[in-house]
Nucleic acid binder design. Structure first.
Lengths: 217, 217
DNA sequence: TCATAAAATTAGTCTTGACTAATTATTTTA
DNA sequence: TAAAATAATTAGTCAAGACTAATTTTATGA
């Protein structure tokens, strides 16, 4: 289909486009890929020529219909492989992302669909992100975070926003996974820290940033 | 680990080294990869510097201990993925090679071993080639072919030598797969064609070349 | 053994996708 | 609004890994 690089740019642009009202600038793409902005400008030119994106100084970068379709397919593959790695091969939460980064680029007309079937058509990946369907439809993502809870309320962890391994390892340490029950005990108004009870156990304090990265049901 | 290209060269050299008494020349490598000999010379230099191969004009190219170890691992990954694609995802015999060519390059310390376990530690891949073990040991390959059968004898198909999709598709047409029973009815002395009965059905005539590519038990 | 063919090698080029440094645009902010 | 800061872009470079064309080595066979 496309080169490794092209696919990574498409995916990165797709991910950035998930943030509502966010203007996708060359710098933003550069940061998300760890590349130099100059390199990004080159690739923007290339992808524009291939009609996968449109770039307008005012609006920033946008995926075209074709670009969106392709990006969604890459994300679909990534998330399906994550499910495979976790459920079938027994990897941990924080190990699967990097491997899926490589697996997602394997292109074969029916691979994603066969894998999807083999896995039982999962709707969400192990990080709770929605897995695009074969027809390109994307299940609704979770959007409420821990910080939206009211005092005393409890919830189930549905997904996480940050997927860095430092965050995922922190979660592991706190014994938090998909489905874990969390109750909000107190909000510290000084810095919006959250005092929570995990699975009914003793209270733990976490930062606002932490809370914003926990999506709940 | 290494670049895509480096890995492909290693694997190609390993495959060529399987043919006994075969001198691995730049031209041979070039042909097996579909590359230009000039490109091969460049890569021979590079791999020699990395101490993965040794090149001697008299002896040709040989894998060093390290090179052999790495090549075996790549072949291990390739063959394990082939088993996965056939057994778990339901691909056909002739579709899996090309996909495994991509999957084999995914490097993660434990991926091959986890996959191996998940598949039940298979000894041979769907083409009947031995799957190197985690410790680098390679199960004994099959070495007797259809042409070694005596008149009237029958056998089981254990593997195939040629893995081109034209051959594999021909096999599919003849309804021959791993495990299929074949009886030798007659050898035509003129051109060594073989008259065989597949799974006890009516007789079929195949060429000597065909027979040499069917490994049997 | 010498001429010819084949193989190996060298030299130089190309493309991809990165980079740095320099320049130009655009935002901020004082 | 002008100066300063930030962002975007251009120009030029680099490495990997392929190529072609030319040259040198090595084999082969008359």
């Amino acid at each position: 289909m496309y080169t490794l690089s092209e696919e990574n740019y498409l995916k990165s642009i797709y991910r950035l486009a998930q943030q509502p009202n966010f203007k996708i600038t060359p710098t933003a793409i550069a940061e998300s890929l760890g590349n130099n902005p100059a390199s990004v400008v080159d690739m923007i030119r290339k992808l524009t020529e291939k009609q996968l994106i449109a770039y307008d100084k005012k609006k920033g970068v946008e995926l075209t219909q074709q670009g969106l379709k392709d990006a969604v397919l890459i994300v679909r593959r990534h998330r399906l492989w994550e499910v495979f790695l976790l459920e079938k091969l027994g990897y941990h939460w924080d190990e699967i992302h990097d491997i899926a980064e490589e697996l997602e680029h394997i292109s074969n007309a029916t691979l994603a669909d066969r894998l999807d079937k083999f896995l039982g058509f999962p709707e969400y990946d192990p990080h709770g992100d929605p897995i695009p369907k074969a027809n390109g439809k994307v299940p609704k993502p979770f959007s409420v975070t821990l910080t939206d809870l009211k005092m005393g309320e409890s919830c189930r962890v549905a997904a996480v926003r940050d997927t860095s391994s430092s965050f995922l390892q922190y979660l592991q340490k706190l014994d938090i996974g998909i489905g874990t029950r969390i109750q909000l005990i107190e909000k510290i108004s000084f810095d919006n820290s959250l005092v929570i009870s995990i699975s009914g156990k003793e209270n733990t304090t976490v930062s606002q940033k932490f809370g914003e990265n926990i999506l709940i049901d």
